[in-house]
Every structure is written in structure tokens, then in C-alpha cells.
Design a protein around this nucleic acid. Sequence first.
DNA 1: ACCTGAACACCGTTCAAGT
DNA 2: ACCTGAACACCGTTCAAGT
Lengths: 205, 205
Amino acid sequence: MSKPGAYTRADVVDTALRLLDQYGLADLSMRRLAAELEVQPSALYWHVPNKQTLLALVSDQIIGRAAPVDDLGDWKATTLAGATAIRNALMAFRDGAEVVSSTLALGLGADGALARIRGGIDQYCPDAEIARVSAESILFLVLGQVWHEQQRMQADSLGVVAPAVEANPEDAQAASRVLQEQIDSFEFGVGLILAGLETRMAAVR
Amino acid sequence: MSKPGAYTRADVVDTALRLLDQYGLADLSMRRLAAELEVQPSALYWHVPNKQTLLALVSDQIIGRAAPVDDLGDWKATTLAGATAIRNALMAFRDGAEVVSSTLALGLGADGALARIRGGIDQYCPDAEIARVSAESILFLVLGQVWHEQQRMQADSLGVVAPAVEANPEDAQAASRVLQEQIDSFEFGVGLILAGLETRMAAVR
DNA sequence: ACCTGAACACCGTTCAAGT
DNA sequence: ACCTGAACACCGTTCAAGT
């Protein structure tokens, strides 16, 4: 904003996020991003040290846009709400889960995701180590599931394989059923971990 | 084997697996693989339609080398043994978890992994849908954890960040403690899901 | 402070042609 | 059946130089 025509780092990240959502991670190259900004590829390296860092910043944006988590009284409900907020944030951008997974594996960004899930757990679990491992388990579960779903959505849209439900004239109905199944298995999986943690906590007492 | 000097698909996959373990996924290119086989890059496309498929075949090798799972009587112990076998298989090759994660997300191969985990669950859980979702949850957890660990190992070896435990003269002791912590949190996480499933099953009855 | 121009060292994939 | 040679359309990154 110092000069017209001069981009800021935030502009670069925002554009990367938009390209990610429009064309997917495979087509998000530094050169394509530069072209979109009508700038030479080398110009990007003034704003960002490398692509890895850029993707970490993109991940932070994705996670940062997750809805704030209310304290619902019940710690299990609160934790599920946190996990759901992360899930929805990942789903809001094409290949969101893959991008966040890789930068998280690199230990680069997106620690906000863990924090959001720990909110509910910490208020009930006194052992910080147990809380951390439990929250990580939930996060891995959410990332794995959403990644799987997003890949499926893309495969379906490309017609690579037959959609799970087809040959049904009421496509909207079928699609909503698939969606419901995904939500169900999401809540089921998180519920398993929460129930397991509860058992574990009760046993110690 | 038809002519000396003529490679088979298995040769290509084996060499890819070896390069993966030696240099990591980032340096496993079709061109490098071709060079290793002393062949032109284009020659690979006679054996394999594309890189994606090659990586799926590599994944199948990684998972296929997992130890067979004995029935331990207790379904929880059997399932944990299955998950541990998968974990060890992933750990046996550099970037094993990342390779398997991505091809699994593409829905390409490595279904053997799910099957191995379901072995223990199926013999106790009558509902196939619940068994499937539970096994998937465990698989996502294992993949996420091992990916995380393998990335940490690489970061440590490159000296990018300070290792978790350092400044200790007894390095071997510190390393074995880290290893034990990883195994503990692995068994803890899987244990949560198994305990949760048990609770869930008991409630239905 | 922000960007261009040019270069370096790579990619995956296709396809006609060879043996 | 298995591979070469040559090409196409790309990559990420560096770095001197410009304004």
C-alpha cells in the first residue's frame, strides 16, 4: 500500500489462497501465482522466502478462518465443536486438508488447529501430556477424513470413478445423504476418542 | 527376464522403493529413477502409465511388507497388533507415511492397510459400517503420527531445529527415551479409539 | 522498497522411431 | 517387447541490475 502497484505479503498469500481454491494444490505454482499478480516469478521471493513458507502462510489463513469455539458447558460437546470448526475450515477451500496436513507435518504452521481442539479437553483433563496426545489424535483423524473426502469429491467431479451413490434420479437427495454419512462418520470417529478419553480419566480417579 | 538388460515392472518398483528410502520422496523423480536404472526417462512409461501409479505400487510394497497379524484372542490386543504392524511397515522406509497417505487419499492402493486393522475389529464388532469407520479412524491416526515422526526425524538430522531432547551427554539414552515416548503416545491414541468403541458396543447391547 | 531479466538446474509426459 | 531420441510444456530458485 506504500505505492500503487506494489504488493504486500498479504496480497500474495490471499491470491495464493484464491488460486488454491480455484485450481487446486497441484496447479498452484509460484509461476502461475506470479502470472496472476502480473509480476515476474522472481518478484515473489521478495515477499516470501520459498514456496514451503508460502504454503504455511496459506495454511494459517485456512485455519485462522475457522469459527471461534464457544464453551458449551459439556467438555465433550465443546471439543466436538472445535473439531467441527476445523473440519469446516478445511472444507472451505479446495485441497484444504492436504495443504494443512503437509505444512503441519513439516512443523511449520497451523498450530492454531491443535489449540482449538485442546480448548475443550484442557478444561477437563488435568494432565497436559494426555490432553496434547488426545488433541493430536483428533486432529490427525479430522485431517485424514477431510483429505479423503476432498479427494473423493475431485475424483467424482472428474468422472474418474463412479460416485458412491448414482443411478438415482433424485441426485440432490442422494448427495445430501452422502453428506450426512460423512458428518455421521466424522462425529462417530471423534466420539470414539472422546469416549475413550472419558473412560481413561474415570479409571485414574 | 526375457532378455538380459530388459527390466520388468517389479524391477522398476523395487528400485523406486530403494531410492525413496535412500533420498526421500522429494528426490524421487522419474528422471532420477531412470538414471539409476541406466535407461532413458521415457523407458519407464512402458512399465508404468505415470508417476502416480508408480507411487501406488510403491505404497503397496510398503504395506505388503507389514508383518502378518496373529489372532491374540483379545480383539483389542489383536487390533493394536495390526496397527503396530502397519506402523512398523511405514517406519521401515523413509517418508513411508507420506507416500502411503497420498496414494491412500487418491484412493489408489494400500487397501491392505485397512484390512489388517479390521482383522481384530471385525471379529468383535457385528456392524460392518461401524467396523469400517473405526478402522479408518485408527489408520488415519497411525498415518498422521508416523508422518509427523518421520518429518521430525528428518528435520533433526538436517539440524533445522533443535531436537526435542539435547544437551544430554547420554545421547543413546535420550534417543531411546524419545522412541519410548513415541510408542507410548501411539499405543495411547489407538487405545483411546478401542476403548471408545468398546463403550459404544456395550451401550448398544 | 519492490521488481525485472536472464539464467540454472531441474520436472512429468508423449511419441515417432529403432532393435 | 522393450527402449532411444527428441521434443513439449512446464517447475522452484538465485541474483545482478533496474527504478
